[in-house]
């Protein structure tokens, strides 16, 4: 039991405890308890600033950022994890902010496009996107840039991808790798070729 409390979670411990995860319907005949409140407090750090919110539990991280914190740089393109326009970086990882609830991010460190740079002080990737015209309508752009920032970290950390030649060697920043890794960010204007140039420049890929 001690192990459980500490989240050491040995297999035996879990089995004994009868805990589990994911997609349960409650056991039939379970005794109903008073429902917890549908409004939930949550606090996290956004772009280095601590934010405390009390939210309808249904509020996605995307809507919390856009509607409650008014950080509208993060875009809602599909709201179903199918386009990548809502990409933000949470605890160093890029995610689709539309497919996660804000209240699931207690204590998290969130970086949005507003946290990367400003018009008068662009992040190197933002500057590269301008230089290489890595956008057209601009709507997917914040998501592309947030995604690219975290993607380059993933590459640096040696995470493999679908197009990696082998699983055992360190992946290189080839065109094929960059394209595959950015494929979760759709650009309907079709700026891919230019976005690729922008990312290559920042990644230090030789032409």
């Amino acid at each position: 039991m001690q192990a459980l409390e500490e989240n050491g979670v040995s297999r035996r411990g879990v089995l004994i405890a009868g805990a589990g995860v994911i997609a349960a319907t409650a056991a039939p005949g379970a005794e109903a308890q008073p429902m917890p409140q549908a409004t939930v407090p949550v606090s996290f750090e956004v772009n280095g600033e601590r934010r405390e919110l009390t939210l309808d539990a249904r509020t996605t991280l995307l809507d919390a950022l856009r509607e409650h914190l008014r950080l509208t740089g993060t875009k809602k393109g599909c709201d179903h994890g199918q386009c990548g326009a809502c990409t933000v970086i949470v605890d160093g990882r890029r995610i689709n902010s539309c497919l996660t609830l804000a209240v699931m991010h207690e204590g998290a460190k969130i970086t949005t496009i507003e946290g990367l740079g400003r018009p008068d002080r662009l992040h190197p990737l933002q500057a590269a996107f301008v230089k290489h015209d890595g956008y057209q309508c601009g709507y997917c752009t914040p998501g592309q840039i947030c995604s690219a920032v975290a993607m380059l970290d993933e590459l640096k950390a040696g995470l493999p991808s679908h197009v990696s030649e082998t699983l055992t060697e360190r992946p290189q920043a080839t065109d094929a790798e960059l394209r595959e890794r950015m494929s979760g960010n759709i650009c309907r204007c079709g700026a891919y070729s230019n976005i690729q140039e922008a990312i290559r420049e920042v990644a230090g890929v030789r032409a």
């Binding site: 979670v9 009868g18 805990a19 589990g20 409650a26 379970a30 005794e31 109903a32 308890q33 429902m35």
Partner: peptide
């Protein structure tokens, strides 16, 4: 904790 999760699931329909 897992134990806590199990307890909550058991008592809450839906």
């Amino acid at each position: 904790s897992p134990m806590d999760a199990a307890a909550k699931a058991t008592v809450t329909p839906g």
